[in-house]
């Protein structure tokens, strides 16, 4: 436990000094602000007509109420989260290889599994912070543009659902950690994230979304009873097993692989 604490302190120190952290925070502020802007455009038909393509996109926001707005936010966090959280995990694991500091971590009186755990904890904390920033800015933007029908109890339920989707997306970080370690850098895990994102879209369309881990948060974000877009108990198991497999794979790789 003492070792884990020391490892966590080290990981947070690295995070504190990295420019990447602030870049991701800025992006997760910028994106919901854009959603707020789109919502504002969608509320003003004259402006929507003048803005051409942007105006057309703004129509996607549909109903100008909190339900419609959160529908967009939920789908966004399922896809943007997949990329954003994947990037965060890629950086946490992959930068040890790109900075060539990995070898400094391998012959210390600290177990490599503890280092992997600390890295995933930092990834989760970092991602949670991004989610928090995202939702605070999104709600603030929604209030600013004057979405009608604010009800604290209802909004709390919407936020709870949003966090559930974000959490499901975060669970998919662990295989990214494995690919960053196996690929010894940042390129391989980012490639993996892009492939899973494309596959998730394809699986969603083909009705297999509830059984493909990377499509599950997206399916959950879509409210309704459309066949092929409803999660089953098996979906949750698949998600959890994928996450556990990703963690175990990463820990085993650190422990057993040859580190050149």
């Amino acid at each position: 436990m003492k070792n884990l604490k020391a490892t966590l302190i080290c990981e947070f120190l690295k995070l504190k000094r990295s420019g990447i952290f602030w870049i991701t925070v800025t992006l997760f502020i910028f994106i919901p602000m854009m959603f707020g802007l789109m919502l504002y455009i969608s509320q003003n038909p004259d402006l929507m007509a003048k803005l051409g393509l942007i105006g057309t996109k703004a129509k996607l926001f549909g109903e100008n109420d909190w339900n419609g707005y959160f529908g967009i936010l939920n789908q966004s966090i399922a896809t943007i989260g997949l990329i954003g959280f994947g990037f965060v995990t890629s950086w946490i694991f992959g930068s040890e290889y790109t900075n060539r500091t990995m070898k400094d971590l391998l012959a210390l009186p600290v177990s490599r599994t503890n280092i992997v755990i600390a890295k995933f904890i930092v990834a989760i904390v970092w991602c949670l912070l991004l989610v928090l920033v995202f939702i605070v800015v999104a709600v603030f933007a929604g209030r600013t543009v004057g979405i009608s029908g604010w009800n604290t109890e209802h909004i709390s339920r919407l936020i709870y659902r949003f966090f559930a989707i974000a959490f499901m997306t975060m669970l998919l970080c662990t295989p990214v950690g494995f690919f960053a370690s196996y690929g010894r850098g940042i390129i391989a895990p980012l490639g993996f994230v892009i492939v899973t994102l494309i596959l998730a879209q394809f699986m969603g369309i083909s009705g297999l979304g509830p059984y493909f881990p990377w499509a599950i948060p997206g399916v959950y974000s879509v409210t309704g009873t459309v066949p092929g877009m409803v999660l089953t108990t098996a979906s949750y198991f698949i998600l959890i097993i994928t996450s556990i497999a990703g963690f175990a794979g990463t820990a085993l790789w650190w422990r057993l692989a040859d580190h050149h």
Partner: peptide
């Protein structure tokens, strides 16, 4: 990280 911070990482790891 500075020289001192890099050494802090090792200091923490080695208690």
């Amino acid at each position: 990280l500075t020289v001192r911070e890099n050494l802090e990482i090792i200091r923490q790891m080695r208690s």
